[in-house]
């Protein structure tokens, strides 16, 4: 693995890979939660992070938009390269990153504001100058929510169903036109039909965006992602990356035995 990484030339990186983690270590106080993760994410693809509970998938995901900065005890070592810039270098501002690397959370968390204001929120705080109505409509359409809410944009986002709320959260993220969207188990609070709608949406969004998704549901990873990274918990309770590769290959012909055991359900 190490060798493969170093052999990738800069040219290839700029061509295909939009963001990559190098020697990523995350500590919560003295506890190391994530150990030496190296991960490349290809442009306009879906990468899924799978693995047992506590393996640090969400922690890794939250490194990509520096959400871990908000946790006082958390400390991140290593680097994340995005467009050739290390997101963890001193001159990079976490707030700025988050408008190009958006995030959708595990539990739908629309603001207690109107549907319209939810979508407009990110645009307003970033000082958007264009036509707000147009931008809101476009984002809601992209999130496949427009037809359901176009007559009730003034209603609170909290009046929507769980699946609609999650699509509203996606629309809110799409509104600021990020490059990459991070999704932290976006369907875990949803019923199967709402889940299917989100999965279809993810496949549609991929033409414009790059998506990294954490999921507990291996069928979901198989359905939506192009590449899969499998993480596990080590003896020291730190999460580490076991293997990463084409989703097809990970699910049918994994290189590592541990991956196979996990995928076939021999342990969880």
């Amino acid at each position: 693995m190490e060798n493969e990484m170093t052999q990738v030339t800069d040219k290839e990186i700029s061509k295909n890979i939009i963001i990559s983690a190098r020697n990523l270590n995350v500590y919560y106080g003295n506890f190391r939660a994530v150990k030496d993760v190296n991960l490349d994410v290809k442009k306009n693809q879906v990468l899924s992070l799978i693995g047992p509970s506590g393996c640090g998938k969400s922690t890794v995901l939250r490194c990509f938009n520096r959400m871990n900065d908000l946790i006082l005890s958390a400390e991140v070592e290593g680097s994340i390269l995005y467009n050739g810039i290390n997101l963890y270098s001193a001159e990079v501002d976490a707030t700025e990153i988050r408008s190009s690397i958006g995030m959708v959370f595990q539990k739908p968390n629309p603001f207690p504001k109107s549907i319209y204001d939810n979508v407009a929120f990110g645009l307003r705080i970033n000082g958007y100058q264009g036509d707000m109505d147009e931008a809101v409509e476009k984002s809601l359409k992209q999130a496949a929510l427009w037809d359901e809410v176009k007559d009730r944009l003034k209603d609170s986002g909290l009046t929507l169903s769980g699946g609609q709320q999650q699509r509203l959260c996606i629309a809110r993220t799409l509104a600021i036109e990020p490059d990459i969207i991070l999704m932290d188990e976006p369907c875990s609070a949803l019923d199967p039909i709402a889940t299917l709608a989100i999965e279809e949406l993810i496949r549609e969004l991929i033409t414009k965006y790059t998506i990294i998704i954490v999921t507990h549901n291996m069928q979901q990873a198989a359905r939506v992602s192009d590449e899969t990274a499998f993480l596990m918990v080590g003896e020291d309770r730190a999460g580490y990356l076991v293997e990463t590769g084409d989703t097809q290959q990970i699910f049918t012909n994994p290189k590592e035995e541990r991956t196979e055991s996990y995928i076939t359900g021999r342990f969880s």
Binding site: L70, F105, K107, F111, F121, I176
Partner: peptide
């Protein structure tokens, strides 16, 4: 709820914007 703050930060708000609007 902390999830409101997280959502706000994830959209690129500064700390004060998060306080003021959320």
């Amino acid at each position: 709820p902390d999830s409101y703050r997280q959502a706000s930060y994830a959209l690129g708000s500064t700390k004060w914007q998060t306080q003021k609007y959320v």
